[in-house]
Design a protein around this nucleic acid. Structure first.
Length: 420
RNA sequence: GUGGGUGUAGCUCAGUCGGUAGAGCACUGGGUUGUGGUCCCAGGUGUCGCGGGUUCAAUUCCCGUCACUCACCCCA
């Protein structure tokens, strides 16, 4: 029993799994940079009011899951529970929306929600996201969805699907909401569901219980009550996705937990996880910029759960990321050899070669074992005989082939041996 | 916030129908005095989650508690 444990619900990554974590994040970064998204590094805590206003007071996230605390001057701060509000705040604050539109940004880092942890759900979780702000062009909706899809695919995932719907906008959703509430009023709902029907009736449609499924079988759906503009927008998004070769299924009962979503809404679902099967999702937000004091510009974005993508890649049995700790492992026999190899390791690193060394005076057998475990392709064995001859033994660990090379041009020899 | 499951070595777990514990992996050394990945031998560690109760005796049974975990809810 150690004296301290990490806080509840916080995942930690070590080798070898941490290599997968890094690879996933880098894969996503590459996917979105191919589409012109620039990286932003934003604060991990913000003014509490930003989230209350941006995400919505009535959401679970704001009403009961935020890490909120006063700083020493009495300001109320909150550890960010999601990414979009902060990005929109930064865009407005720094006037990024005054240049060319859309503004296309991406971010990655930790987010925090005070929830009961379970498989794939953490109190500190890592998300990767993008936002494209300043246009309602449906081609951008399709682009955002397509780059997420490409990212998953580049990460090697195959057992996932994309679900898509439209939540309408201020022109058509209020009327639909009333229609749905009127429909729900006549149903025999339990108290909890009844409350949900008042607060966020759309969420009732997402109920997992089979009896609710049958009860709600012929409930009115948003997609059947879209206004002409939303209808056209939705149709064009689907058209572009098809052009881009992105497969999707429509799920008219999909619900998002954040208030700001309008029109295009999507979710990526993976089958290899537990109950928390969403590996990413997002959508369009028409009112958020104005709500936070900026221009009335529309935006769209996604958030991908890096932790869940790592879990998904494990579930699919993928080996993602470079598991080798180094390219070359140095094995010294004796003090003089060690002195020489310590210097050689420095020279090789300066030349960009990843090098480790058997420290602590291990025996030859143990050192070779360490070389094997390190994942290195080459071992450099140096003993007194070699030192006297001015050579070092260069061994290919996969084939077992070994040959002496002059210490003088070690860097060149190693580079040649490593190049394919 | 509400339920279920589980807490034993660094990790994964077995076990004691109550007499204070084992395996595999990992680690170190040796077999092979200058060669790893296979094999063989040797070596070490546990307040058996914590507190209380029953008992001659509790890691084992009972109660409580904490932690972890899965699920509801919600979401990444």
């Amino acid at each position: 029993m150690s004296m301290f444990a990490a806080p509840k619900g916080v995942p930690e990554y070590f080798p070898p799994l941490s290599a997968t974590f890094l690879a996933v994040r880098n894969t996503m970064l590459r996917s979105v940079s191919l589409a012109g998204y620039g990286y932003v590094e934003l604060p991990i805590f913000e003014d509490t009011a930003l989230f209350a206003r941006g995400v919505g007071e009535s959401t679970d996230v704001v009403s009961k899951e935020m890490y909120t605390f006063p700083d020493r001057a009495g300001r109320s701060l909150t550890l960010r529970p999601e990414g979009t509000a902060g990005v929109v705040r930064a865009v407005i604050e720094h006037g990024l929306d005054r240049g060319q539109l859309p503004v296309k940004l991406c971010y990655t880092g930790p987010f925090f929600r005070y929830e009961q942890p379970q498989a794939g759900r953490y109190r500190q979780f890592q998300q990767f996201g993008v936002e494209a702000i300043g246009t309602d062009d449906p081609a951008v909706d399709a682009e955002v969805i397509a780059i997420a899809d490409a990212g998953y695919r580049d990460a090697g995932l195959t057992a996932y699907r994309l679900e898509l719907t439209s939540l309408g906008d201020t022109a058509c959703r209020p009327a639909y909401r009333e229609l749905l509430q009127a429909y729900l009023r006549d149903l025999p709902l339990d108290a909890e569901t009844r409350r949900r029907a008042d607060l966020n009736p759309l969420r009732v449609l997402d109920d997992k219980r089979p009896e609710m499924h049958t009860l709600l079988a012929d409930a009115p759906l948003m997609v059947d009550h879209l206004c002409a503009a939303c209808r056209e927008h939705y149709d064009r998004v689907k058209g572009y996705l098809t052009d881009l070769g992105v497969k999707f299924t429509e799920n008219p009962r999909m619900v998002r937990g954040l208030d700001y979503y309008t029109r295009t809404t999507f979710e990526f679902v993976h089958d290899g996880l537990g109950s928390q099967s969403g590996i990413g999702g997002g959508g369009r937000y028409d009112g958020l910029m104005a709500e936070l004091g900026g221009q009335a510009l529309s935006g769209i974005g996604f958030g991908l759960g890096v932790d869940r993508i790592v879990l998904a890649s494990q579930a699919e049995g993928l080996t993602v990321g470079d598991q080798a700790r180094c390219d070359v492992f140095c094995v010294p026999l004796g003090e003089a050899a060690k002195d020489r190899l310590v210097a050689a390791a420095g020279a090789l690193r300066a030349a960009g070669v990843r090098v480790d060394l058997a420290y602590g005076g291990k025996g030859l057998k143990g050192s070779m074992k360490a070389a094997d475990r390190s994942g290195a392709r080459l071992a450099l064995v140096l003993g007194e005989r070699d030192l006297a001859e001015g050579v070092v033994q260069l061994k290919d660990l996969a084939s077992g082939d070994q040959r002496p090379v002059p210490l003088a041009d070690l860097v060149t020899s190693v580079r040649d041996a490593l190049s394919p």
